[in-house]
Simulated assay, not measured.
Amino acid sequence: MVMTLNGILVPLITPFDTDGTVALGALERLAHRVLDEGAAGLVALGTTGEPGSLTAAEQEAVVEVTAAVSRERGTTLLVGARPDLVARPEVTAALVTVPAFVRPGEAGVIAHFETVAATMPVVIYHVPYRTGQQLSAQTLLRLAAIPGVIGMKYSAGAIDETTAALVAGMPDGFALLGGDDAVLSPLLAIGAHGGIAASANVDARSFVDLHTAWRDGDIERARTLGNRLTALSRSLFAEPNPTVIKGTLHDQEHIPTTSVRLPLLPAAPASIRHALDRLTLSGSARGTR
């Protein structure tokens, strides 16, 4: 199932219950909630979902739940972590990172994605501060032109000349999705199609409104929302992702615990309070209390 990628996709956290198991009911409710708030789709087993700490069976259960929600709601679903989990009709594409650690060089990156995209639709995840490999504008455009590559989660950490060249040269049918929440607004302003925003776990509606404002040319509203959501995103990423997001969702009573799995540790209460304050200041507090 291949859809045009546009709008805000939410890379879901993986909630844990008090006994340490995956809280699948809470995951299902969270998926429906962000879609109710206008999200264009879901991402399962992205970095925010802690896939490396889940067993194979837990990964499969997470995909089963999110696929069922996507099937019911008719929305986009991207899946990371394991290619075999992509082979189901509800999944739009695999979210695949640029090869990390080995740093194969730009020619190697291109060859890698030509091979992967020959077997499944792919959204490339370009995140140099995690993979250890920068890519030139020329290489990014070559990746965008590979048949089967339908988009890119772009998390380069800044808006620079490389970003501008990528936006200017994007081929038809390719979607650029911002992946750095704090700089999502300026990327939307210069032509990105949407975003994969972890911060939208706590307030999808405001991120959807941000995308809509830039799309519709409502510059004043977009700037105001962008400034508020940048401050919110910075507070949510004050400690390793998704620890503060989980603490905030727990305070809102959306998930049963703040638990993460090693090597992550739960966020400090002060970080969670600061994020909640930012939610309140932005007019975005929508808890269930």
Rank of each mutant, 00 (worst) to 15 (best):
M3A: 09
N6E: 13
I8N: 01
P11E: 01
P11D: 01
D17G: 14
D19T: 01
A31D: 04
A39C: 05
A39L: 04
A40I: 10
G41S: 06
T47S: 15
A56E: 09
E58D: 12
V63Y: 02
A67V: 09
G74K: 09
T76Q: 09
V79M: 07
G80V: 10
R82K: 15
L85K: 10
L85C: 08
V86I: 15
A87C: 06
A87T: 12
R88H: 08
R88T: 09
E90M: 13
E90A: 15
P99N: 07
F101M: 12
P104K: 08
P104R: 08
P104H: 10
A107G: 15
I110R: 08
I110Q: 04
H112A: 08
F113W: 07
A117C: 11
V122N: 03
Y125K: 02
V127H: 11
Y129N: 07
T131M: 00
A137S: 13
Q138F: 01
L143H: 05
I146T: 03
M152C: 15
Y154E: 12
A156D: 13
I159D: 13
T162C: 11
V167R: 10
F174A: 10
L176V: 11
D181G: 05
A182M: 08
V183D: 06
P186F: 04
L188F: 04
A192M: 14
I196Q: 09
A198P: 06
S199I: 01
V202I: 08
R205G: 15
R205T: 12
D218N: 12
I219F: 08
I219E: 13
R223E: 12
G226L: 04
G226V: 07
T230L: 00
P240S: 06
V244G: 02
I245E: 03
G247H: 09
G247M: 07
L249I: 06
E253G: 07
S259L: 09
A268Q: 12
H274Q: 14
A275H: 02
R278F: 05
G283K: 14
A285P: 03
R286K: 14
R286Y: 08
G287I: 13
